[in-house]
Nucleic acid binder design. Structure first.
Length: 324
DNA sequence: TGAAGGAACCGCCATT
DNA sequence: GCAATGGCGGTTCCTT
């Protein structure tokens, strides 16, 4: 049986601390025998949280250092993820040196990064914290769009349900697709979700960036459904086309065309969620002109197709038309 | 899915 | 001398 330590660190989110036991515990052989022995390891008394609120105190049955006897350590999210004591960081470094596999769920990635285990590696965390992680640990290559990152001996995952995806992935890695599929069915999850966490991100920052181009960006947003060329944008911004091409990326981080496509896809996401319009109609309303071109840009940005996105996110009572 | 045409992008250099 | 801007032409990317 594969031994797994769920690390009960201070401020641990109860749901995610229990995720390894719940999901890995669902992995069984054909005969019904358990494949993982999940142990909760931590200090004598640990505060556990949910949504930032202190909920209850834990008395882990195993000590922190017992995690070193396990083959895998899972670090859950914590409200104190970036303020863990040196004892926890040292334990993780020692575990890594001994070849123990280490995984994090959600903000647990901050603990791994604080221990220096993510230096020069790809990693992810909850989409709301990816910018913070990248800013605090510049040597970590943060990928905000995926549900989890498997770097072999170190794995990181997105928020909450991303931890479930990660655990199912661990089962698939250790015991194959069939065992993982059975475990996934047991916890009522798809064996592999479509798309990454990019599809869960709600964007509000459009008008907040753009510096001197804020008014122009607002105008572009109002006119996404019409063809917009560089010359038009430049005239609107009162600069030459050449200056626009030079300054637009400085202000927004994207070229004008990339920015337009991104905003059109976001508008399409909104319409897919809140209206019953056909994909073709949405393509026209977002300036893509036809469904083929919408699909062409939608999948690379969102990670799934417009139809699949609608199946996942459609508001149930929006069958008669637009709600906004 | 691939090809052709056009738009967008970017490096370089001149001008202000 | 430096920074911002704009024109030109080659390359890349998008649309049809």
């Amino acid at each position: 049986m594969h031994s797994v330590a769920a690390l009960a660190i201070d401020g641990a989110v109860g749901f995610e601390l229990a995720t390894p036991a719940q999901v890995l515990g669902a992995a069984r052989t054909q005969a019904g025998d358990r494949l993982y022995d999940v142990r909760v390891c931590g200090a004598a008394s640990v505060g556990a949280t949910a949504n930032g609120q202190h909920l209850f105190a834990l008395r882990p049955p195993y000590r922190l250092r017992d995690a070193l006897d396990c083959e895998t350590i899972v670090v859950p999210a914590s409200t104190m993820a970036d303020r863990q004591p040196e004892s926890v960081l040292r334990l993780l470094r020692t575990a890594h040196d001994r070849g123990i596999r280490i995984a994090s769920i959600c903000t647990g990635a901050f603990v791994l990064a604080s221990a220096g285990l993510l230096d020069g590696r790809r990693a992810t965390t909850h989409w709301a914290h990816t910018a913070h992680l990248a800013g605090a640990f510049p040597t970590v290559e943060v990928d905000p769009s995926v549900l989890f990152v498997d770097e072999g001996d170190i794995l990181t995952s997105a928020g909450v349900a991303g931890g479930i995806d990660l655990c199912i992935h661990l089962i698939r890695r250790d015991h194959g697709f069939e065992v993982a599929s059975r475990a996934a069915r047991r916890v009522v999850m798809p064996p592999q979700r479509e798309g990454g966490q990019a599809q869960f991100v709600r964007h509000h920052e459009v008008a907040e960036t753009g510096g001197g181009f804020a008014e122009v960006l607002h105008w572009m947003q109002e006119n996404l459904h019409t063809p917009i060329g560089l010359d038009q944008i430049a005239a609107r911004a009162n600069v030459s086309t050449r200056t626009l091409v030079r300054r637009f990326p400085e202000e927004t981080g994207l070229t004008a065309l990339q920015w337009l496509i991104r905003e059109r896809v976001r508008r399409a996401q909104l319409l897919l969620e809140s209206t019953a319009f056909s994909i073709e109609e949405i393509a026209v309303q977002t300036g893509f002109r036809d469904a083929a071109r919408l699909r062409q840009h939608f999948k690379p940005q969102v990670g799934t197709t417009p139809q699949a996105y609608r199946r996942s996110f459609r508001v149930p009572d929006s069958s008669t038309g637009p709600t906004a």
